[in-house]
Amino acid sequence: MVPIQWYLWLSVIVFSIGVFGFLSRRNIIVIFMSIELMLNGVNISLVAFSHYLQDMRGQILVFFVIAVAAAEAAIGLAIIISLFRNKATAHVDDIDEMKG
């Protein structure tokens, strides 16, 4: 049987790649994908613990996360498209309207 640590390492790696991508990439679509990656990293650990503790609640939570992620993807993409229509760019450094 695969020890739980392995799953957790995988989860950490996937989540860290997501964080790294979110912080380092400038393309808004890639950043968006990185967010999905972070969510899935968390999902992995949730499922792993759910199995390890023989408790279904973790997996139920994962379904919620997937559902929310889907909704977020829909809204997020809509925002990105309207942003692109307004500014004709997908580069986040060009989007600094909130600058103080």
Binding site: F22, L23, I31, V92, D96, K99, G100
Partner: peptide, 18 residues
């Protein structure tokens, strides 16, 4: 002076958060 922190760049906010 404090307004300088507000760069408007999402990734900087995220970095500070991280």
């Amino acid at each position: 002076r404090f307004r300088r922190i507000q760069t408007g760049l999402v990734q900087e906010y995220a970095a500070v958060m991280a």
